[in-house]
């Protein structure tokens, strides 16, 4: 049996279902966890699955799922970004400040996204061409963005944005726009990662940079591209973050980068690069939102949330390492 090649197994229908399950195993596990959580907590306290709670859960957390899409791409390419939380804080503040000062709404939405892309393209250049490890560059960016933001704004609250600016509060067929953003962007990114040459190149670079280079993939521009796209997702996330409430606090949301990275990793993006999907990271972001919300409904102190997060990321990573060793 050991001589059977993967190519052959793909021709057999029964095997195809199995390999489908293997490549999306993590996503199914999270989906199952979500179902168990919704049924279990909903049974204990039906208000957990009320439309109101579900809506506020999605509106409040869709931006994390969207930021996790870009983060997943960065991690799949074998890098990491610990500055995304600060970037979202900075871009959200820029967007809100522009809106208050009467700039056209379209500009208030687009300019922060562009700035996010430019900043992260710079990070990409430092990682790809100057060969500074991404952890160091983004640690530096974290303190530059965070310190810069607080020293410029003093952490002041921004309020009085025009209603037409509040894109996260728009509704279509009764559903908040955040949900559409999350679903559409996840679907587009998943298809693009799976079928576009660039998407495949990201997997190849993360899996084995040397092999990718020999196959003719131009690694350096691709890394800059990945970071730029990640900047775009961070920008969109920042707009949704800035428009979900009537006020924006011009600081960095605490531990946001960790939540985003956790969503990616728990969603099945391997920390060693080369594997994972953005569908998994979005599901994981929803799972976190649901866990956070369920603690309230189960009367457990919210102060334990971070410990639960830590345990989950640890369990997922250990499972990932165990699976790799078996293969």
């Amino acid at each position: 049996m050991t001589t059977e090649t993967p190519a052959l197994s793909r021709l057999v229908p029964v095997r195809r279902w199995k390999s489908f399950f293997e490549s999306y195993g993590q996503e199914f596990v999270i989906l199952a966890a979500l179902v168990v959580l919704f049924v279990g907590v909903g049974f204990y306290n039906p208000r957990f699955i009320s439309a109101n709670n579900l809506t506020s859960m999605f509106v409040g957390n869709a931006y994390i799922a969207i930021a996790a899409i870009g983060m997943s791409m960065v991690i799949i390419s074998g890098n990491i970004d610990v500055s995304v939380g600060s970037l979202i804080g900075v871009l959200g503040t820029i967007s809100g400040t522009m809106a208050v000062n009467g700039y056209p709404v379209i500009l208030c939405w687009l300019v922060p996204v562009l700035i996010g892309m430019v900043i992260n393209a710079g990070v990409g250049v430092l990682v790809a061409y100057v060969k500074i490890p991404s952890i160091v560059v983004t640690l530096g960016m974290l303190s530059i963005l965070k310190g810069g933001l607080i020293s410029v704004t003093g952490g002041a609250w921004i309020s009085g944005m025009p209603p037409e600016f509040m894109i996260a509060q728009f509704r279509l067929f009764g559903l908040p726009s955040s949900v559409y953003f999350m679903v559409v962007l996840t679907a587009l990114a998943a298809l693009w990662m799976k079928y576009s040459p660039f998407g495949r190149a990201i997997y190849a670079i993360g899996g084995n940079p040397e092999a990718a280079r020999v196959t003719g993939i131009r690694i350096q521009p691709a890394i800059v591209g990945v970071f730029t796209i990640h900047g775009m997702f961070a920008g969109i996330a920042a707009i949704l973050f800035a428009t979900q409430l009537q006020v924006i606090q011009s600081t960095v949301p605490p531990n946001l980068e960790l939540t985003v990275i956790t969503a990616s990793v728990v969603g099945g993006v391997s920390i060693l690069g080369g594997t994972g999907t953005v569908i998994g990271s979005t599901l994981a972001a929803i799972l976190f939102a649901a866990i956070g919300s369920s603690l309230v409904f189960l009367n457990i102190s919210a102060y334990w949330l971070r410990a639960v997060q830590g345990l989950m990321i640890l369990a997922t990573v250990l499972a990932d390492m165990a699976r790799r060793r078996r293969i």
Partner: peptide, 24 residues
């Protein structure tokens, strides 16, 4: 478990801080 240190300690960063918050 051969987990890369960056990820292992990122996970325990959340876990240990979470324990501190939960206990206090």
């Amino acid at each position: 478990f051969k987990v890369p240190p960056l990820i292992a300690t990122l996970a325990t960063l959340a876990l240990y801080r979470g324990l501190a918050e939960g206990i206090s």
